[in-house]
Design a protein around this nucleic acid. Structure first.
Lengths: 333, 333
DNA sequence: TTGTAGGCGTTATCAC
DNA sequence: GTGATAACGCCTACAA
């Protein structure tokens, strides 16, 4: 692999001049520039990015830590970040943190050791204070979930408002026994959605019932979570995240229960093709990722400028039918 | 950020000793080791990974280039790769190549400049010969699509066999007017699936009809591609990739056409919840990613060993009902 | 067991 | 406009 020295020798200039040509420094005569360019082409020179990073102390890489890149929501967030980063000549280094809170810190720090220009995190642990020292070196931005113990720029969606609208929708169609289906991760998103759900119930004067709240892994089939919920007399379900919704939809289908109303927080690709169509709170992971990545670079470009720390992106309810099944149709067990 | 020198000064040893302690070199007395450890802790020393990479010429990073991380199939491939890589202390640098073939080379080379330990690519361009020089430095493995112009380890799925089984399934249920729905990307996967489709037709003595082949963007609604297909008398559709299948399913639903049989290459998350259930060729992106990443490290560990260049992973047909609609039900236009 | 010398490829500084 | 020189932080080789 040719180095700058080789190019310099061939073009009969110094290494510094090669560097200048490569970095589009205007202080190079057209003549020299051409000679260097030719030499670079002959040798197939490509600059060693690692050496550059080493020297400058800053890697043209943006770190991204999400719970799981295979989750469609986070996959879209990552994709959006990538688009912004690549427009700035940055590559993206991703890590899936998994759902074990203890893995967050080591995984994120492994990323940070690489002199990244910035970091975007969807926190999975209950404490992000370990990031405080790092934030001095490179901007840290949180996405989807607000951090605890470390103040950093944060972009979340209106979890509470969306959940409130979802449950209100079910209430408006006559439901009173509305279940809350969620995962067992205890994320801030889940908590906010629960708050919104409860707020909507309160608005309607409906007493919350703990028997109608089930948190766990909905992909395991209808027996463990869904059936008990229906036993408890649920006529409608608010599923608080897309993964759970998939489980709920498959479970209801397996049980042949078409009489249970459903609103999902997070739309599904085939939501419109279900019978009835899936009513869902529409999220915009692309907007979230774009906003976060844009903020990283904004912080780099204008370090001094003050900005709103927390941004809440709106969500909207897409009514398709599954939220409009009247409770009258339901067989109350 | 403290460097080895700082730690060395504080522990009253040389920088080399600090390095030894950090790399668990046994040739350090317990006493010295303890002193150095203490100094490291005091200063919050973390080794500069970039400097190490620079010095050793090899970054603990694995490059991954896929068409789109937001595509569920590739997202799962990436996730599987990540798991293997992180078990080896490697981070993953991902790039979405998009669908423009011209972007492949620059994007991939941008990755390669970082002295990666290896590279995993889903090619999007018609020629990978530019990778030949790079392959000498680090193992290059292709996934999902075989490369052209560069021999490298390749892991693909049985596209032809899966497609053949899919179309055979439709033929077995009496269909003769079987459409082929695909994207317009001209990927090797599409070509192989077309071959399998044609082979199944030939097996059954059915003449292929170009009017029943539509390639394009199926997400744009039923007007452009789906309706002409039905006009041409298709009673069944073989959709050759998951993205197209989503479009076909949504399109058929929008048109209210429940009488058209469908088999999809690639299962969908809610496939089982559709009415009728979606019959699909089940792929295993996780296995593909795991195999590819494992191979990268195998090549690193045993550079000399000869291995089969191309591995074809099997796929299986999941029959759920959508492939069994009899042509009699269809309204032939 | 520990230390010294040297260099990986690039860029910053400061001459010319 | 161009070049010499000196780092950046670490690791390999060799020496003590």
């Amino acid at each position: 692999m040719a180095s700058m020295r080789d190019v310099a020798d061939r073009a009969r200039v110094s290494a510094k001049t090669v560097s200048r040509v490569f970095n589009d420094d205007p202080h190079v005569s057209p003549d020299t520039r051409a000679r260097v360019r030719a030499a670079m082409a002959d040798l197939g020179f490509t600059p060693n990015l690692v050496a550059r990073t080493f020297r400058t102390g800053r890697d043209a890489a943006l770190g991204v830590a999400v719970p799981d890149v295979a989750d469609p929501f986070f996959a879209h967030v990552v994709r959006a970040i990538e688009d912004v980063a690549s427009a700035r000549g940055c590559v993206v280094v991703v890590t899936s943190l998994g759902h074990d809170p203890d893995r967050e810190r080591p995984s994120v720090e492994a990323l940070l050791h690489r002199q990244l220009v910035g970091l975007i995190v969807v926190p999975t642990s209950p404490d992000q204070s370990y990031l405080a020292p790092w934030a001095a070196q490179a901007p840290v931005v949180f996405v989807d979930r607000a951090p605890t113990g470390h103040l950093g720029d944060t972009f979340v969606e209106d979890d509470e408002g969306g959940a409130r609208a979802a449950t209100a929708h079910l209430l408006a169609h006559g439901h009173r026994r509305i279940a809350f289906a969620g995962d067992a991760l205890g994320t801030p998103t889940s908590r906010h959605r629960m708050l919104g759900h409860r707020a909507a119930l309160a608005d309607a004067g409906v007493e919350p019932d703990d028997d109608l709240v089930r948190l766990g892994d909905w992909s395991a089939g209808p027996t463990g979570l869904l059936e008990p919920l229906l036993q408890a007399g649920a006529t409608a379900i608010f599923s608080s995240d897309a993964r759970s919704s998939v489980g709920v939809v498959l479970g209801l289908h397996a049980l042949g229960r078409r009489d249970v109303a459903l609103v999902s927080f997070g739309d599904l690709a085939l939501g419109a093709a279900l019978t009835p169509g899936l009513t869902a709170v529409d999220q915009d992971p692309h907007a979230l990722g774009t906003a976060a990545a844009t903020r990283v670079f904004a912080r780099i470009d204008e370090p001094g400028r003050r900005r709103r720390r927390t941004t809440v992106l709106p969500v909207s309810l897409v009514a398709r039918g599954s939220g409009e099944l009247p409770p009258a149709m339901s067989s109350v067990t």
